[in-house]
Simulated scan of single mutants.
Amino acid sequence: MKKVIFAEFGGPEVLQLLDAAEPHAGPGQVRITVRAAGVNPVDWRVREGQILGAHPTELPSGIGLDAAGMVDEVGDGVEGVEVGDHVFGEGSSTYAEFAVLSAWARMPEGLTFEEAAGYPSVVETALRVIREVGVRPAQTLLVSGASGGVGSAVLQIARERGITVIGTAGAANQDYLRGLGALATTYGEGWVERVRGLGQVDAALDLAGSGVIRELIELTGDPRKVVSIADLGAPELGARFSGVAGSVPEALAEAADLLSRSKLHIPVEKTYTLAEAAAAHIDSQAGHTRGRRVVVV
């Protein structure tokens, strides 16, 4: 089978599309024929060797956590899923023609493989950081870098829970944020005052890692009410860095429920082939995403 592999840590150029042995489902796992794989910032952080503590990596290694496809092997002890079922979930080395998933859910009706592949890590992260930041219904949450995949999920999940959201993004994404129910403003010079003009901030999330932790603490008045998924230096200022996944099966179940009730939709901004994995990482690292990027197999 074809699989994207890297044999050394480094830039996008270390990614190679090679022939590799097919993986097989072990106990508690399923194997899928991959139809699409989600592209996440964690993928290029793993490729660069940034987060070896959370993601131990033995070289050469595959890449990718999220995927959607058709089940073609069911491991021992697995119930409720059969060969041929359409599922989306998390596993390992998902930029490949076949991948093993350790957590999955059935794809809701009407969802394409490309759309489904964009949800697993994004929704798990969104649910986790909303929980960790401790924001409650009728409070206001500030989301810095709100137009990407995690931000798109946070805005919609928060709205469903009765939380007001202020989102910052580039000028081109203001209408997109408003369409997701957020109060929107641009980042850049004067952004703190623009946020203040929109309301009192009870909690804040940093999703872009753009060096705004001090300002988020200033706006909330409490470093314990600031959580980042992108700034490894956040704890030095008293804020929290969130990098350890919670219950992925629970997150997938909630994602499937939200999707089936039309309460969650994250557009696929761009698709890539397996051979274009390096380009997908370059674009992901550049930021300014509206929605999701997906590798189509």
Rank of each mutant, 00 (worst) to 15 (best):
M1C: 03
K3S: 13
G10R: 04
G11Q: 14
G11Y: 04
V14D: 05
P23S: 08
G28L: 02
Q29F: 00
Q29K: 10
I32Q: 04
V34P: 10
R35G: 15
A36E: 08
A36H: 09
A37N: 12
V39T: 07
P41I: 11
D43Y: 15
W44E: 06
R47N: 06
E48M: 12
G49W: 12
G49T: 09
L52N: 14
G53N: 10
G53F: 03
P56H: 13
E58S: 12
E58I: 08
E58Q: 15
S61V: 01
G62A: 15
I63N: 15
G64R: 06
D66S: 12
D66N: 15
A67Q: 10
A67S: 04
A68R: 05
D72F: 11
E73P: 03
D76I: 02
G77N: 08
V81K: 05
V83P: 07
G84A: 08
D85W: 11
H86V: 05
G91V: 09
T94V: 07
S102C: 01
R106G: 12
P108M: 13
P108H: 05
E114F: 08
E115I: 03
E115H: 08
V123I: 14
E124M: 05
E132L: 14
V133T: 07
V135Y: 06
T140D: 05
G145T: 09
A146E: 02
S147G: 00
S147F: 01
A153Q: 10
V154A: 03
I157F: 00
I163K: 12
I163E: 09
G167P: 07
A169S: 12
A169F: 08
G170M: 13
N173P: 00
Q174Y: 03
R178V: 13
L183H: 06
T185R: 10
G188D: 07
R194L: 08
V195Y: 03
R196G: 04
G197W: 06
A204L: 02
D206L: 11
V212H: 03
T220L: 00
G221Y: 08
P223D: 08
P223W: 07
R224T: 10
V227N: 06
S228F: 03
I229P: 02
I229E: 06
D231L: 03
D231N: 12
D231W: 11
A234C: 02
P235I: 11
P235N: 07
L237E: 12
F241I: 00
S242M: 07
A245R: 15
S247H: 04
A251L: 04
E254R: 10
E254A: 05
S260G: 01
H265K: 09
I266D: 03
P267C: 01
V268W: 00
K270P: 00
L274Q: 05
E276N: 01
A277T: 15
A279M: 15
Q285C: 01
A286D: 01
H288L: 01
H288I: 00
R290Y: 03
V297C: 10
